[in-house]
Design a protein around this nucleic acid. Structure first.
Lengths: 233, 233, 233, 233
DNA sequence: CATGAATGAGTGTTCATTCAT
DNA sequence: TATGAATGAACACTCATTCAT
């Protein structure tokens, strides 16, 4: 699946708190239910390791992208290779889990912000701001977002759905060019993400200008129709 | 160097035929004395090899990006590894040279087109069109353009200069938002290049819509000032 | 020790019920005082675990041979790795114990059958049949039988002794070639076991033909003396 | 394919000198055709390395079986890993090539010996002798012979064909039990190979006795019909 | 005492670069 | 000089065994 490949966009996004990781402990935390202390005893350490791995991996992937040596992650986590592979049977599993969490967090935040305002344009703008702020420090996330729209088909779809909602709100309010598609917006955000990543170190804040330009180009003030995409595809 | 890092933008681009590669000496060069045909034969052969390598590398890098196995290039060139490494002591040297040529060709074409029209907006638009059309078929070029604005500082600067000219023409004609900088345009083109690369296979032509949106956002019709970039950097 | 390495063949086999495993102490053992039910509970539990491990290991080793992952055994036993390693400090210890039991059962059965008939030739034939039938479903047993004649020196010796008895009975009845040694018979059975293992999946029953051929070759009908084994060894 | 799985036994074996290795230089040697000295120059060293690898691998596989570490082979060959993998892109390729050569040599020798005598029984006997002598010092060969009849389908088939010829000759001379099949003979030789491997170190020569017994069991002196193999398979 | 998570040396394999021919 | 074979440090991943809980 690519960025803009969304055959059946669900009208409502999946609950944003849902992570794709099998063991996903919700944000609630460990001490909320002190029921099974025996089981908790074992899990506590493992969970700590798992968290350490995820954190280290998150950092390393963010800094260096998805192509890093697994050993680097193990080293930074303070665990052995075996531990790492016990929790994530494949480097790709680890990557997907890490990115999944980060996408989930991002989408959850996006939902929250979007429902915090009644102004549709502000919602759209805020989404782009938040997205680019988040991604400006995360190589792997951008790689994934650009390559396939997200680490998972589900992530990509939820992202698509969410953007679709924003688009609809703006469209109903007559704020958006009438022929803007959700695919346009998805592509645009990916494209800007890349720019952000590129200029993040040297020109922090530069991307805000690009964003403004793009948003201005999206507004209904522009009346000329956009070119049709290739029909045969 | 990054996309928008242009401390001292030269007002005029270097002559576009000049490559910045260290091994540059083309047909002219040292062998002014056509005495020993044997040696000249060698020279001619070497030149042929070099050309074959560059051509093969160009194709391979374009198709697969800069991370391909050097063997693939040697194979497609029909030369041995030693020959390849004699001409280009490092994979990166080869990559830089190839990209340098492609950038040069691209810039030369861009210059030509820009001087073929009197309409500044048409010049700007045409440049973006040409750039994205070219880059939609060249992975390595986009990688390089996005990462550092070009394979060498010189390339990046010439590119910057050229865009700066376009900007000036448009600005003088009052077609561009007054606070658009050259850096904005450079970043924008890199950003769109990425989108083109991403969607090239699956959504050919999609990028034209993004481009139109962006160009609309650049036009002087938009009057709100852009946010200042981070002052301290 | 190898299949036919029997320097001092005991004239009588050890009682077949005895296992040679070092951890042997079965239900009898130290806990003669049934005082603390808690401790006995533990003991019973431990024994149950040990049995579960042995059973699972037996099945797994039989199916896949001695090279299986220990985790597979732990999983099938329903116990943790630590428990497994508490009972058997080494994978090899477990293997030896399992094979020891299986050898014991096999030998016990062999003894029983051998004493159930008065026909020495029938006893010999039946032994081979039983052996090959048993082993055709047990990879690890065959591996062990072929490699060293059994999991332990004791097993190998008891096996040797038993075969020696069969040989003697047949020899006394004049049914066996006069220069057949016990080593010959041991080797022969190992060799046929291998064939059984090999052809078990694809040619079930094939091995019966080989067995018949071999048995015919053993009979006293063949009068030519066998070649002497290397004298110097 | 297993030992006795021979759907379409070719009536005549393929020319035994043919090796399955792609680069296989025939036995002729390097100096026979001094034509292209330039090309020879390069190949000589590589060929030496290839030979060194094959020799080392042959020795190591023979001693320790097919499960050895590739590094051990590289070390013993005196070459780096890359060289090894240049010549044999996979460990299995190396194994197959080595075994292929050894099988070819073995089969070639077998053909030679078989045509050196007019006595069919002597031919059969000699074949078994030669086979077991050869295999008594080669773990990997026996592993392969037992598991699949040879490293290659072709090897297995040629082996089968050859044995089939021996069988026919003996059968025509009335020396073999009439219902002996080629599969029986193939299985028997595999079975004995295993015994030979097992006892090779400790009881050299022991296997000759087993062989004699088996051969006696094969002779037409034994008139009882062999059991039918499972009909449904 | 049971659990199963942690360990880390070892496995097959790749690839930018060097070097003998 | 051109060739392509040689090099070896990495890489992703496995598994017998140990150890904290």
């Amino acid at each position: 699946m690519t960025l803009a490949d969304q055959p059946t966009p669900a009208p409502e996004a999946a609950p944003p708190g849902t992570t794709s990781a099998p063991e996903a402990p919700p944000t609630a935390g460990t001490a909320a239910t002190p029921a099974q202390p025996a089981k908790r005893g074992r899990r506590a350490d493992a969970e700590r390791n798992r968290a350490a791995i995820l954190e280290a991996a998150g950092a390393v992937f963010a800094e260096q992208g998805g192509a890093v040596d697994v050993r680097e992650i193990a080293r930074r986590s303070g665990v052995g290779m075996g531990t790492l592979y016990r929790h994530f049977p494949t480097k790709d599993d680890l990557l997907v889990t890490v990115l999944g969490q980060q996408f989930d967090a991002w989408l959850a935040d996006a939902h929250e912000r979007a429902s915090a305002t009644d102004d549709p344009w502000q919602a759209l703008t805020g989404f782009f701001e938040q997205t680019l702020t988040t991604q400006s420090r995360n190589r792997a996330v951008v790689e994934s977002y650009i390559a396939t729209g997200g680490p998972t088909r589900s992530c990509a779809q939820r992202c698509y759905s969410f953007i679709d909602d924003l688009r609809t709100r703006c469209m109903n309010a007559g704020l958006l060019r009438p022929d803007i598609t959700t695919t346009d917006l998805v592509l645009l955000s990916g494209s800007l993400s890349q720019a952000v990543l590129t200029t993040g170190d040297t020109h922090p804040g530069q991307w805000r200008r690009l964003l403004r330009i793009s948003l201005d180009g999206l507004s209904s003030r522009n009346t000329e129709p956009l070119p049709e995409p290739e029909p045969g595809t």
